[in-house]
Design a binder for these strands. Structure first.
Length: 474
RNA sequence: CGGGCUGUGGUAUAGUGGUAUUACGCACGAUUCGGGUUCGUGUAAUGGCGGUUCGAUUCCGCCCAGCCCGACCA
């Protein structure tokens, strides 16, 4: 038997494994424009399924969708000093239009704060116009130095929410609420997240506070799965976003922005995938169930007819009957395993004769036989089990790879996240970065109100404030 | 942007100063079908510009592009 392996094992080279899976599962490929990816139908469907759930959750909180232009006048971007410093190295700028040089250059949006808030200033007059809570699904461009499929392309799809409040407390409450929405979305993908606050160095350019949902993937690195920022009145002061209060006074508004991108697809691949390819939870699987008929020439009609009947029975689900000729069942098994299809039904003469179905689960690679009559009723339960199994595997992995350390030297070449008591100084974070190319990822929510376990910072020995998580990241 | 590397069919590769190799893929035809069947036939390539030369895919120079490792980021 020739066994062809087109996927590099994870342990051999994780980065190559990732690229192999993206290619072999037909999720995406590089385009002729450096840094910009082409997302293929199978990959795009995964994103659409994630997006549908997130969109539902966002709207459930009362947020409405809008659309603002892709171009932003350069002068808008330059208005907020921290913001432009944060983004200018990665801006794409339009200098010509309609065959003529533009007097006022336009930036392709890297994010829309500076595009939307001038308009917000016009819309908001009184405290009665607040809160204003809007979201847009769009593409943004950041000229990244080192692209990676889904995780860091120069152009990417995401949603960005931009909300405005009268009071700081309301804004902060919403910032956490939206972070919870992101957590729920990741739970929908069977991924556990670590929620909390970003350090001064790692926070969003122009924000007062950045909160984040961090995900650990299988090489122990972190993926920033979504961020929710409290912008304070920083942008309000620049764009004059003010309201007249019931006290008759003019006040600056408190603003938030929050974003979640198709990077999440990369997180799913890296957190759930294995050496045989992708593993998808049923919620976001473009094909939830694949039926592979096994036949010879003599019984082909009979077996396929049986398979068709089963497909019909499973109508509410996303089902594919793979009746392609000239391919062996083994080939098809592998094909759909690479693509991460959570459930496979194997249907041959034996099943037909005994009124049975052989079910293969991608999450744990087991096969079971059931009676046909059980099929329809067991699917919801099976999906749930697969979802939980994938979630638990990811959770278990994360927990096993968080190492408590008291000194920076304990990091050595260990893989994973490191929990440590930290003084929170920018200098110490810089040191950590130089030594281990690692930065703080998050101050977990649960540790925010607690004193640090160790009184001394693991880097500087100065007074520690809280217990933070540190990791290398994508 | 720094460091390293590479440009040969769709993909991955071999080789050569004079007719370009192999595998996969793809097309057609058989064969096979319970874990990546087998065979036959066909298909298709030297990144660009310049130099050396009778002749360059090969040697030289420049350009362009890509990959990997760092710094930057959803």
């Amino acid at each position: 038997m020739n066994v062809k392996k087109n996927i590099t094992p994870q342990k051999e080279n994780f980065s190559e494994w990732y690229q192999d899976v993206v290619k072999e599962a037909e999720l995406a490929e590089n385009s002729e424009v450096r840094g910009c990816g082409i997302v293929r139908p199978y990959g795009y469907k995964i994103w659409e399924l994630i997006k549908a759930e997130l969109s539902r959750l966002i709207e459930e909180t009362g947020v409405e969708n809008v659309y603002f232009p892709i171009f932003i006048p350069m002068e808008n971007l330059e208005a907020e000093k921290d913001h432009v410093e944060g983004f200018s190295p990665e801006l794409a700028v339009v200098t010509h239009g309609g065959g003529e040089k533009l007097v006022n250059k336009l930036a392709v949006r890297p994010t829309s704060e500076t595009s939307m808030y001038k308009t917000y200033a016009k819309w908001i007059q009184s405290y009665k116009d607040l809160p204003l809570r809007l979201n847009q699904w769009n593409n943004v461009v950041r000229w990244e130095k080192r692209p990676r499929p889904f995780l860091r392309w120069s152009e990417f799809l995401w949603q960005e929410g931009h909300t405005v409040f009268a009071k700081q407390a309301e804004a902060e409450a919403e910032m956490w609420q939206m972070l919870d929405v992101y957590e729920k979305t990741y739970q929908f993908m069977a991924l556990p997240v670590m929620k909390g606050k970003k350090s001064e160095a790692e926070k969003f350019a122009g924000a007062v506070m950045t909160t984040t949902a961090e995900i650990m993937v299988k090489d122990g690195k972190a993926i920033q799965g979504g961020t929710s920022h409290y912008l304070g009145t920083n942008f309000a002061k620049v764009f004059d976003v003010t309201y007249l209060g019931d006290d008759g006074e003019r006040h600056f508004c408190h603003q938030n922005s929050w974003g979640f991108s198709w990077r999440s697809v990369g997180a799913v691949i890296m957190a759930h995938g294995d050496d045989n390819g992708l593993r998808l939870p049923p919620n976001i699987a473009p094909i939830q169930i694949v039926i592979v008929p096994i036949y010879k020439d003599e019984n082909k009609q009979e077996v396929i007819a049986y398979a068709e009947e089963l497909k019909k029975e499973l109508t509410p689900y996303r089902v594919k009957l793979d009746a392609r000729d000239g391919m062996t069942p083994g080939f098809k098994f592998n094909h759909w395993e690479v693509k991460g299809v959570p459930v496979r039904l194997e249907i041959g003469q034996k099943e037909k004769d005994n009124n049975e179905i052989t079910i293969f689960r991608r999450d744990n690679e087991t096969k079971i036989k059931i009676n046909r009559s059980e099929l329809k009723n067991m699917i919801p339960e099976l999906f749930k089990e697969i979802h939980i199994s994938l979630y638990d595997q990811a959770k278990d992995f994360s927990e096993k790879h968080i190492h408590r350390i008291e000194s920076i030297d304990e990091i050595k070449d260990q893989v994973g996240f490191f929990e440590a008591s930290w003084c929170e100084s920018k200098e110490s974070e810089k040191l950590l970065k130089e030594k281990f190319s690692m930065v703080s990822r998050v101050l977990p929510f649960a540790n925010m109100e607690k004193e640090s376990k160790n009184k001394k910072c693991f880097i500087t020995g100065a007074e520690a404030k809280h217990d933070w998580l540190f990791a290398k990241s994508y």
